[in-house]
Write a protein that binds this DNA or RNA. Structure first.
Length: 1139
RNA sequence: AGUCUCGUAGCUUAGCUGGUAAGAGCACUACACUGAUAAUGUAGAGGUCCGUGGUUCAAGUCCACGCGAGACUACCA
């Protein structure tokens, strides 16, 4: 049994405080478990699955998190309103480099110190404590912004259960042959001694412009391997290749050409050694390579007569051929210092690669498989060996550069032991000439250089050491995502992306250019790879149970003394049981398994990329498949209906989710995804700590409260657009939308309480209500219809704007303004009940529709309304259901008429302004010309009368008074354009010059014949619009099809009434000043000039009625002195004491 | 460097499938209205719709190129 607080009257407030409302509501939610109820109450309904992208708990939340979390919250709440069950589990990304680095900074240690100054165990413990600290802050933040998510049973990526699921998934991949160990080239920082993730490479400021020494190198072709044509050439043939990293040249093992690129053989000279020779390069690059120093010739003579010292070198094109034809050709090793340890015979070949372009360089790409990602790939495909040499000490083949970034000792002087980039030397100790320069000089001396120049380009730098990174071959475990590429592309077509372009372009493009996923991370705080290996055998562990069994075998073999998992009970899914296991480093490294041959197997020491952690959350959050199997298998919690994160997650979480689900189950992981735009500062710059333009979300929330902040963010831009965050905008939202809505409620509450309205009366049929009510209800239902569409299409901007427009313009500034008297003046009549019911329904509907975005405010509003009427209500707005619109209530005729009335009002008010006649001064007559009559317009004339203060309104058609107005013809281009084509312009000119008589005739005949270019053309009335031109005369004004004429003559009767109303206004002000209650009666006395006395006598009753005066006397000795129309009068007011 | 998104008044923006002197809000100025108003109304000022070409009878809207901003991707040698 639930007990609710019931209110006898509608709650009224002295002051409006959004913040206070929010904190009160937050407490109520907690106290009454509203969030839990919002899920339980939907038991048995459709399930709407939402996945929470786990935030990395390594720092304070920023203002953009408000945006992201609000959007997630909005759609979950919306779907709850629609009656769906929206369970959402929170989650935390507890592992990963960012956390490790923060901890290192806090402890003031580096990676190298781990295991030395601090034990791995202690280190990981510190990471865990660090994470816990921030999850607390995040929870507080989440509550503060009103983001509803289940914090009681969050998924944590470091939990044993979570890790077990990850291991299981990896094992599945292994079984599917999607997991392999490979020697792959990775970004690597020699200075830091560690590989870098793509995430790290994309930190701001990583790519810097640097200037490198680049050379175009000559690789001497082995003629016999070339096509027959070359064999007859009398001199040496060279392949030209360009490189920005000369230090990779000793590691060269191949050259790549584009198979469909056209190449040339050219007869010319080397510009340094003046050797006459043949060079091969791409046709389109000839002008870039053979620039300034060279000039083309077509005869042999110029070549023959050339001698050293001539300032220009001749060249002659000998032949053209396509890249394909030289594939397989061989060349002499450029720097024959060492040879590859394997497959030597395959080295120094020309191969084909589709990545070769002719934008820069020579069209031939130098390949060093050890130091380039593309290089390694193309070499592998073509069975070209990498330049690795056998190290007898380490007993393995190593590249020519060591892990510190130095050339190995095996190379000749002066290169041996030198850092390949000068940046790697400490401070001032670097040599005068870098390896690049020295090597270029050497090659030049040997006549192997065609050209040397400086080149500026962007190159990634290690964000920790600020030094250029190296691409270096590392031993890593990879997931063969490329094998699932087409599945992923296909499955992506079933995902609804918001905005579409992110999915169809950006994400799809990314999928089409997929690389395998490098899983290995040489770190400490993360999920260990569950792989044990010998040289010949490897075993992957997919569960703790399996590990326990394997350890038992190992104990038998004598490799381990006892089973650290002995207390773990297989099959017992209790948390207590799982708390007995913590497989993090270093624990897991102590486990030695036994191979089938009886030899020890040791664990691969790396961790898994954290992105794998979060990408596996659909499964791991449920400890799948060990528990909750049906949640996934029966599709109850998979795939998600909805996820949302920042656009930056497209290649991050959105991708890892997609990849894992595609490979594991050939299914999408989510059906709808919103890629949320970024939050920039108010000038459109990215927020960053270094720029100092970040915004503290806690401060913003303290200042303006969550509702205004949320509303502001979602109304300013579409969820997927970048938001330029300006705190002033929140204040504006608070003032305008929330202020107005509050005032509307306050107005309602005040009068409803006076009249004792509690919605006890039966619901009045719409057709029995006055036009004004029918109009606002029509607008309301149209609003419901649109808002629903906008929510369904994730268009929060449109939704908020249209709600706000309804509240401010329609409800507050028009409906209430016009209807004020109905609430104030009359007795408790049917009309009044209609007004109350109408306003109540509007407010109630607004509270529900805006509740997803402004959850606190709208709940307070909702409760204030329903707890008093006790009519079909729920404990909270968040347990209510989205309103249903009624097409029958939407009335376009009344809408149009009201629009007309509003326009007329606007025109008349502008007349008054121009003539400086106050609205309080009544005027006699208003004539409105309309093109056609609508019944409703007559009933609305009362509204216009009241609003613009005129005594009489007359409606007439245009035709009746046409002779008084200047009329003009406007062509209907949509009809004339297609008919006349180029002649449209001429017709326009002719029609513009039509005289009033011609227009009259046309109107009478229904058409007009005009002559263009000698041809007679019939223009019908449908093809033009006849409009009344705005007259300069202040009396008349028109707005599109309506025209308004105002009688400005003020006689004494009108003038006196005006004065009376003016007087009432002053008296009301005094009442207010003297703090009389709104219903207090009073005694009134006025002292004024004889003329004013005459007015007072004439309008005595009116004045008394309006000011609730029981008596009105004329006395010049009492009351306040008030300036009134140039004279000083006295007004005395005394509250009547009640019994 | 490539890919994607975007560019409308000082600021934030609306402008549907091209239809003809470009609409709002904020801020500014002046005046008004108000017994719900931290609101509102009226008027004023403020625009080469980023630029240049093109398609079309007609371009803010479509196309191409350029410029600028942002994101993503990237040692493409």
């Amino acid at each position: 049994m639930i007990f609710f607080v019931m209110y006898k009257t509608f709650k009224e407030y002295n002051k409006f405080n959004l913040n206070q409302w929010a904190s009160e509501i937050a407490n109520l939610w907690k106290k009454n478990n509203i969030f839990e109820k919002s899920i339980i109450s939907r038991e048995g309904r459709n399930v709407y699955v939402f996945y929470e992208g786990p935030p990395s708990a390594n720092g304070y939340p920023g203002i953009h998190h408000v945006m992201v979390r609000t959007i997630k919250d909005v759609f979950c709440r919306y779907h709850t309103l629609k009656g769906e069950k929206v369970y959402r589990k929170s989650g935390w990304d507890a592992h990963g480099l960012p956390i490790e680095l923060s901890v290192e900074k806090e402890l003031n240690i580096t990676k190298e110190d781990i295991g030395k100054k601090i034990s791995v165990e202690e280190y990981n413990q510190t990471c865990l404590i660090y994470v816990m600290r921030y999850t607390r802050i995040w929870k507080k933040f989440t509550e503060k912004i009103g983001y509803w998510i289940d914090h009681k049973t969050p998924y944590m990526t470091y939990h044993s259960k979570y890790i077990e699921s990850l291991w299981w998934i990896l094992k599945q991949f292994y079984k599917k042959k999607l997991l392999y160990k490979g020697y792959t080239v990775q970004p690597y920082s020699p200075a830091a001694g560690t590989g870098l993730s793509t995430h790290e490479l994309n930190l701001p400021g990583t790519y810097k412009e640097i200037t490198d020494t680049t050379i175009v190198v000559q690789f001497k072709a082995i003629k016999e391997s070339l096509p027959t044509f070359f064999k007859v050439l009398p001199r040496n043939v060279y392949f030209l290749a360009w490189t920005t990293t000369p230090w990779t040249l000793p590691s060269n093992t191949a050259l790549t050409i584009g198979p469909y690129i056209e190449y040339l053989v050219i007869d010319t000279f080397n510009s340094y050694s003046f050797e006459r020779m043949y060079v091969i390069l791409a046709k389109v690059l000839i002008s870039q390579i053979l620039s300034d120093k060279y000039f083309p010739v077509s005869d042999n003579v110029s070549l023959e007569v050339f001698q050293k010292g001539d300032h220009k070198i001749p060249y002659k094109i000998i032949n053209t051929f396509s890249g394909k034809s030289i594939v397989g050709s061989r060349y002499e090793q450029l720097l024959p210092w060492v040879i590859p340890s394997e497959r030597k015979k395959n080295a120094f070949k020309v191969i084909s690669g589709d990545f070769v372009t002719t934008d820069t360089g020579t069209g031939l790409v130098h390949i060093a498989p050890t130091f380039g990602v593309d290089d390694a790939e193309v070499a592998k495909k073509n069975e070209i060996p990498p330049m690795l040499v056998w190290d007898s000490v380490k007993k393995q083949a190593l590249p020519l550069v060591d892990v510190q970034g130095r050339f190995i000792q095996r190379l000749p002087k002066p290169f041996a032991g030198k850092y390949v980039r000068n940046e790697y030397y400490n401070t001032e100790k670097f040599p005068e000439f870098s390896v690049d320069v020295e090597l270029s000089a050497l090659l030049q001396k040997e006549g192997k250089v065609f050209k040397i120049e400086k080149y500026q380009h962007y190159y990634p730098h290690c964000w920790r050491t600020d030094k250029p990174i190296l691409y270096y071959p590392l031993d890593t475990w990879c997931i063969k995502t490329t094998a699932a590429k087409y599945d992923m592309i296909y499955l992506n077509k079933n995902i609804h992306w918001v905005p579409t372009s992110t999915g169809t372009s950006r994400f799809n493009h990314w999928l089409e250019n997929l690389n395998d996923w490098n899983l290995s991370r040489t770190r400490y705080w993360g999920v260990p790879l569950p792989i044990w290996r010998t040289h010949k055998e490897e075993r992957i562990i997919g569960s703790f149970e399996e590990l326990r069994v394997e350890i038992e075998k190992s104990i038998k073999a004598g490799f381990m003394k006892e089973n650290p998992l002995k207390d773990f009970v297989p099959g017992d899914m209790s948390n207590e049981n799982y708390q007995k296991v913590d497989v993090h480093k270093p624990w897991v490294d102590d486990i030695i398994l036994v191979s089938t041959r009886g030899t020890p197997m040791r664990r691969e020491s790396d961790l898994i990329d954290v992105w794998f952690d979060s990408g596996a959350m659909p499964f791991a959050q449920w400890h799948y498949p060990f528990e909750n199997k049906e949640k996934i298998d029966k599709g109850k919690f998979f795939p998600a209906n909805f996820i949302a994160e920042g656009v930056d997650q497209t290649r991050g979480w959105f991708y890892t989710l997609h990849a894992i689900s595609s490979m594991l189950l050939k299914s999408v992981a989510y059906k709808n995804v919103v890629a949320i735009g970024l939050v920039l500062d108010k000038n459109g710059h990215k927020m960053s700590k270094s720029k100092g333009n970040t915004v503290n979300p806690f401060e913003v929330l303290d200042l303006y409260g969550p509702d205004a902040t949320r509303w502001y963010m979602l109304s300013k831009v579409q969820p997927w657009e970048n938001l330029k965050f300006d705190i002033y905008g929140i204040d504006e939202v608070r003032r305008k939308f929330f202020g107005t809505l509050y005032n509307t409620y306050a107005f309602f509450a005040m009068y409803a309480n006076i009249d004792g309205f509690c919605y006890k009366e039966n619901f009045l049929p719409i057709e029995e209500r006055p036009e004004m009510d029918r109009w606002v209800l029509s607008e309301l239902h149209q609003l419901i219809k649109k808002v629903e569409i906008y929510y369904d299409t994730y268009n929060t901007t449109r939704a908020t704007r249209i709600i706000s427009q309804f509240v401010i313009d329609d409800l507050s500034n028009w409906y209430i303004r016009i209807s004020r008297r109905r609430f104030w003046k009359e007795k408790y009549s049917k009309d009044k009940v209609s007004a109350y019911q109408t306003l109540y329904d509007c407010l109630l509907t607004i509270s529900i529709m805006s509740s997803p975005i402004a959850p606190f405010f709208s709940d307070q509003l909702y409760m204030n309304l329903v707890y008093t009427t006790q009519k079909s209500f729920f404990e909270s707005v968040h347990l209510a259901y989205f309103p249903k619109y009624d097409e029958k209530i939407i009335d376009n005729r009344i809408k149009n008429c009201m629009h007309l009335a509003q326009r007329v009002t606007s025109i008349v008010l502008s007349f008054r302004k121009k003539k400086n006649i106050k609205v309080r001064q009544p005027l006699r007559k208003l004539i409105i010309f309309v093109s056609s009559f609508e019944k409703e317009i007559f009933s609305l004339s009362e509204i216009i009368k009241q609003e613009v203060n005129v005594k009489e309104i007359q409606f007439l058609t245009h035709k009746a008074y046409s002779k008084f107005f200047i009329r003009e013809i406007k062509p209907n281009f949509k009809m004339l354009g297609p008919r006349f084509g180029k002649r449209t312009r001429i017709i326009y000119d002719i029609l513009k010059k039509f005289t009033p008589q011609q227009i009259d005739h046309m109107e009478k005949d229904g058409h007009s014949i005009i002559e263009i270019e000698g041809l007679k053309e019939k223009i019908t009335l449908k093809e033009v619009n006849i409009v009344i031109k705005t007259s300069k005369n202040w009396l008349i004004a028109s707005d599109k099809e309506i025209t308004v004429v105002l009688d400005l003559e003020i006689d004494n009767v009108l003038r006196y009434e005006g004065i009376a109303r003016e007087l009432i206004n002053r008296i009301q002000n005094i009442r207010k000043k003297k703090e009389l209650g709104i219903t207090d009666k009073m005694i009134l006395s006025i002292g004024a000039s004889p003329e004013l006395e005459k007015v007072i006598k004439l309008h005595r009753e009116y004045i008394c009625e309006e000011t609730l005066s029981v008596s009105l006397s004329l006395d010049y000795n009492l009351g306040d002195m008030v300036d009134f129309e140039g004279e000083t009068i006295r007004i005395f007011v005394k509250k009547l004491a009640y019994e």
